[in-house]
Design a protein around this nucleic acid. Sequence first.
DNA 1: ACGCACATGTAATCAGTTACATGATTCT
DNA 2: AGAATCATGTAACTGATTACATGTGCGT
Lengths: 188, 188
Amino acid sequence: MMANGNAIFRHFILGLLARQSMSGYDIRRFMRSLGLLLGSPSFGTIYPTLHALLEDDLVTVEVVPQPNRPARKVYTITTAGNQALHDWVARPASSKKGLKAFVMHLILAEDSARDGLIAHLDRRRSEVMDHHTTLAQAAEEWGEQASPGQRLAIEYGLAMASAELSWLEDKLAHLSAELEASPATERV
Amino acid sequence: MMANGNAIFRHFILGLLARQSMSGYDIRRFMRSLGLLLGSPSFGTIYPTLHALLEDDLVTVEVVPQPNRPARKVYTITTAGNQALHDWVARPASSKKGLKAFVMHLILAEDSARDGLIAHLDRRRSEVMDHHTTLAQAAEEWGEQASPGQRLAIEYGLAMASAELSWLEDKLAHLSAELEASPATERV
DNA sequence: ACGCACATGTAATCAGTTACATGATTCT
DNA sequence: AGAATCATGTAACTGATTACATGTGCGT
């Protein structure tokens, strides 16, 4: 039955609706367009989530009839919805779900001030750094007795982590430079 | 209750046992050492999986008593287990679960012949390439109207995909060079 | 003709986490 | 004193997928 509690997508979907009113179908299409970044949820996730948001008065629906096909149900965020969303965005990051949560926050990042974004990237950076350290340690501990496959996997993990770290550090450098240039929170 | 059917970890755990007999606790420690590469499953996943493997006669247990603490239960793969494992490794790749499935296959890669490994890396490469294309398309379609957050996310995704692609292509180049040098399937 | 895009929804099922239960030993 | 490591296990809960149900219009 799925009693949608606080699923990962719940707040993300809310965030998408904050930017633009959409139907469930639209939401799915949008997520699809992000490829592997977020695992695109199926309708079995999206529709019930929308119903739950509606139930909680965080969104409203407008039924748009169409000739010869089911009516579109366009969802719009409410004031309460915006409140809930901002609370979520402000929150220190769910962290647990790792990559996906990170990307979702990233996509919705414009709302949060520049330093919120910086904090978010910085948290991710320290997570990835930890990961990198963990892998390096594993490589060291296993030493000779590691199988070729294990070695490959470690090598892969280290390479990916390094790549992500340099991207993050690069972005962070740019962002703090911009922040220095303009004292207050300013838009681009 | 969890009627462990064909969970992702089922075959991976089997693969680990093929390399070395271990207890559930050991398995968990091993997975932990890989940091974010595989989301380390909890005991609530590991123990039931082990019980299921036992039930299916793919592994056997040896109970090793210890003074002042619960006995270790060391699991060892059976002939049937090895059969099942090889069937899984040979299979075209579950693909669906993406990254994790890829890494798991990678770790167990030594068993498969060199060209099996190449095929595996190559599949991943085409997946990541598709993903890259999808993202690039999204960026183009959204154009001006994309929010800064969306742009950032796309940029991030493209950077990660590119990094992964170059790693994969690099590895593939090395591997096929080695393969050419030694006609038959040979070990390093 | 067949499948895909459009468009919504529900129920069954699976997979995994969290929390609980138990208990000694070693590090901080 | 309190936390972490060692060591196993179960039950309740949550989150998400898969498969089903329904139906038109368009492209190949």
